[in-house]
Nucleic acid binder design. Structure first.
Lengths: 140, 140
DNA sequence: ATTATTAATTGTAATGAATACAAAAATGGA
DNA sequence: TCCATTTTTGTATTCATTACAATTAATAAT
């Protein structure tokens, strides 16, 4: 009946991942909240519905998803990791005023090629820091 | 007599920064060790020569240098910050095997322009993760 | 089904990078 | 030399993340 959850389930099974309840809920959160949340934000949200869930499980699940190449981990703020279910190669913009991390659909030819100067590329991490369009407008 | 230190001193004075002993030593370390060291590595090295130096001073100095746009702070490993005295815009490569961070002299047209999609760019952070040329060769 | 085996989840404790803060020391100007 | 300001120090604290053992849940075999 719950089509969204069924789809997530099928997606995990196709990748050989057991679709446990927690995994489905974490994945659902990431798919729904595409604002690059922290592990804490994910925990805070899920614990409302699943009072027994532990922070460790959230971390475990996120790291597990990253190993299985289901999500990306962003180290941008220098404070805490951000999680991104969008695995198509793209760039990010961190606003120093509002703290938002904005997606940028920028191509990267080096990444496409898969190597650079003889080094084999596995992950691409391109981001800018600055003041976002909205904050510039509002003169924050 | 110590020409290198005199040059560093002049560089700091030109930027309106008081060339204290610790600042000179930290800057000297970064200029000499261009392997993107951690704050801990800098502290460990300097404490040999300056037994009274504190970790806090190293952190303070590094953050101060970053505010004054003398150095870049890299958040790549997800564990700890790395410091780079090379402020000319460039990319990095993190090897998952040996852990080295390798400089890549890649141009970025968005950064040159100073903005992207209406957002004002202040810092550029481009890096790849993968296996470096040497580790590929050695089949580590 | 029932049990045995494996995997996932939990809770607590520990780790470790980085910061807060107040005291002490050093610096530069009058 | 004295004073005001800045820098440095040392300790305590914060906070994200991991380690690990115990518990629970899920899967497979008989």
């Amino acid at each position: 009946m719950n089509t969204k959850m069924e789809l997530l389930k099928k997606g995990l099974l196709k990748k050989g991942i057991r679709p446990t309840y927690i995994r489905l809920k974490v994945l659902d959160y990431l798919e729904t909240n595409r604002n690059h949340p922290t592990a804490e934000a994910i925990y805070k949200s899920l614990v409302k519905e699943i009072p027994t869930i532990s922070r460790t499980s959230v971390y475990n699940t996120l790291n597990f998803f990253h190993e299985k190449e289901l999500i990306n981990i962003l180290f941008i703020t220098g404070i805490e990791a951000r999680f991104d279910s969008n695995i198509s190669p793209h760039h990010h913009f961190l606003c120093g005023k509002c703290g938002r991390i904005i997606d940028l659909d920028i191509e990267c030819n080096y990444f496409k090629k898969g190597n650079i100067r003889g080094h084999r590329i596995i992950e691409l991490h391109g981001y800018f820091k600055g003041i976002c369009k909205d904050c510039l407008k509002e003169g924050k």
